[in-house]
């Protein structure tokens, strides 16, 4: 079993116009930088992107937005991106905003074979419009559908040739659920190792969810809000 591909360009070679992609990350933390750059180079468009955020103007998914490669975004929070806000308010970009916990669970459900679930999040708000409501334990809940994608693009710290993944810090975020929900999941890792080198007790994403893996390069890991305290 060998899921290794040479680089991001090879990994995404069969992603086509109009496909639905899940893209891991929270803000700019844990985003698949190499795959996003490859999508920019490939110039495919009309993409539907499922991602918690939309990057910033000149990094992350913001790069695809600037080139008008995204037709629709499914996200929970899209602040800090002026171009996104402009495209959304002008109607050029279709946007489906959904609660962050529902987004995570919809991806998890999609990967876990659960077609839909009820959640209290969003009941009584405009995001509940048109959704089935049921009372459980005296409390109203709305029906949310599972999400899947043609491709899931995830980023991990370490991975092996079998696709087993370990994430670092808060770069884990949406990556494990999206890895589960992609028909084809592409993992880019900072360090690619041989099977047996990762401790099986500490695998976050089992390799069964990953179809392609490569060692990424030149990670910028941009910090969105650099906050520090003084030593005094």
């Amino acid at each position: 079993m060998n899921k290794v591909v040479s680089d991001a360009d090879e990994a995404i070679k069969d992603i086509e116009n109009g496909m639905t992609l899940m893209v891991g990350g929270f803000g700019l933390c844990g985003i698949p930088e190499n795959c996003i750059a490859a999508l920019v180079r490939k110039k495919i468009n009309n993409l539907v992107c499922i991602s918690n955020n939309a990057g910033v103007d000149d990094f992350g998914l913001g790069l695809l937005l600037q080139n008008r490669q995204i037709r629709k975004m499914i996200s929970s929070y899209v602040g800090e991106n002026d171009e996104f806000e402009r495209q959304m308010l002008s109607g050029e970009l279709e946007v489906d905003l959904i609660p962050q916990g529902s987004l995570a669970e919809r991806c998890r459900a999609g990967g876990a074979g659960i077609p839909a679930f009820f959640t209290p999040a969003g009941y009584g708000t405009e995001i509940a419009e048109g959704k089935e409501v049921r009372i459980f334990n005296g409390k109203p809940h709305i029906l949310e559908m599972a999400l899947t994608a043609d491709f899931a693009l995830v980023k991990a710290w370490k991975g092996d040739r079998f696709g087993n993944l370990i994430y670092k810090g808060t770069a884990r975020n949406f990556n494990p659920m999206m890895a589960m929900a992609g028909k084809i999941t592409i993992a880019e890792v900072e360090e690619l190792v041989e099977p047996g080198e990762l401790d099986p007790n500490y695998i976050h994403t089992p390799g069964i969810f990953v179809q392609r893996i490569f060692q990424g390069k030149n990670y910028e890991k941009r910090i969105e809000q650099r906050t520090v305290r003084s030593k005094s």
């Binding site: 929270f26 803000g27 700019l28 933390c29 844990g30 918690n52 800090e80 962050q100 916990g101 987004l103 995570a104 669970e105 991806c107 998890r108 710290w157 670092k168 810090g169 808060t170 770069a171 884990r172 975020n173 949406f174 990556n175 494990p176 659920m177 976050h204 890991k221 941009r222 910090i223 969105e224 809000q225 650099r226 906050t227 520090v228 305290r229 003084s230 030593k231």
Partner: peptide
Amino acid sequence: PFEGEEDPDLINAGKQTVTLKKGACLFDSA
């Protein structure tokens, strides 16, 4: 974090760099 000790892989929900206390744990969004 103290200046110079920021970790891009360790942020809070406001996307600010933070640190972990002793006994902290990390997990996915679900």
